[in-house]
Amino acid sequence: MTQRQRRVRDRTERARRIITAARELAEAEGWDAVTTRRLAALIEYSQPVLYSHFPDGKDAIMAAAALEGFAELAATLVAARPGGLGGVAAAYVAFAEAKPSLYDAMFTHASELRFAEDDTPEVMKACFAELLAVVEPTAREQEAGALTEVFWSTLHGLVTLDRGRRLSPQHRDERLALVVERFGAEGRPKA
């Protein structure tokens, strides 16, 4: 291994440690607890080292964590796709429940990461494509992309309202079943 390759590897490993530490701290204490000072102390690097990897500080670290989250969610949805619309919906909700701070970095905190743009990162497009793959067969004459956005918005709304304790806990499973039934009904022939 050349000295240059070693430097690149070491830099990649440092960035990985920073993101991992940020994710762990965020899941334990929330994103407000994630500061460059705390991260530097946790991973035993100086703050300038963190800024050399992430010049925009915490926002850039959170965006890097979000991109990892999109890759993880896409893989989760791929695995759930054999279960159809219901399997994907349940997997989406389970992901949000299991990784609430990561989900927040992906979908609720302000970020420069944008969907449906020319420069949208591929991993985000792949995540949306997994939702589209199960919604598209139900679309019939409706535009599949728009219907997928509504399906995704519905899941996100359920996750957000449930986490905020704005919905009845005893109807949780029924709500998800209703979403799946309503979206699945779009693909069935009318009687």
Rank of each mutant, 00 (worst) to 15 (best):
S111A: 05
P100K: 07
F107N: 05
A74W: 00
A139M: 09
S111V: 02
S111F: 12
Y45T: 15
I43E: 07
G83A: 06
S52W: 07
Y45P: 01
L77K: 01
L176H: 02
L39D: 00
R182Q: 14
L102D: 03
R16D: 14
L176K: 01
D119K: 13
G83P: 12
H171D: 14
E97L: 09
A96I: 09
D59H: 15
T12F: 08
T120V: 07
Q5Y: 00
R166H: 15
A146Y: 13
P100D: 08
R188H: 14
L102N: 04
A144D: 07
Q5C: 00
L158A: 10
A96T: 10
Q47A: 04
A75H: 06
L85C: 05
A90C: 05
W152R: 13
Q3G: 00
W31D: 03
A98F: 02
L167N: 06
A105W: 10
E68T: 02
D10G: 07
E141F: 14
D118Q: 13
R37N: 12
F70Q: 04
L147W: 12
V134M: 10
G187P: 08
T35K: 06
S168L: 13
T2D: 01
R165L: 11
E29G: 05
A64H: 10
L161E: 12
M124G: 01
A80M: 07
G83H: 03
D32A: 15
A110T: 15
R23G: 14
G184C: 03
A90S: 09
G69H: 02
A79F: 10
M1K: 02
E117N: 02
A66I: 00
A40T: 07
A75E: 10
D162E: 15
R11T: 01
R11C: 00
L155G: 04
A64M: 11
T120C: 03
R182P: 03
F95E: 04
G187Q: 07
E24Y: 09
M124K: 04
E112W: 11
E181M: 08
E122W: 02
E97T: 14
V8N: 01
D59N: 14
A110M: 11
I61Q: 05
Q170P: 13
T2V: 02
A126D: 12
R7D: 00
R38Y: 07
E44Y: 04
G187A: 06
Y45C: 11
T154Y: 05
A110N: 09
V179K: 06
M106Y: 07
R166V: 08
E27M: 06
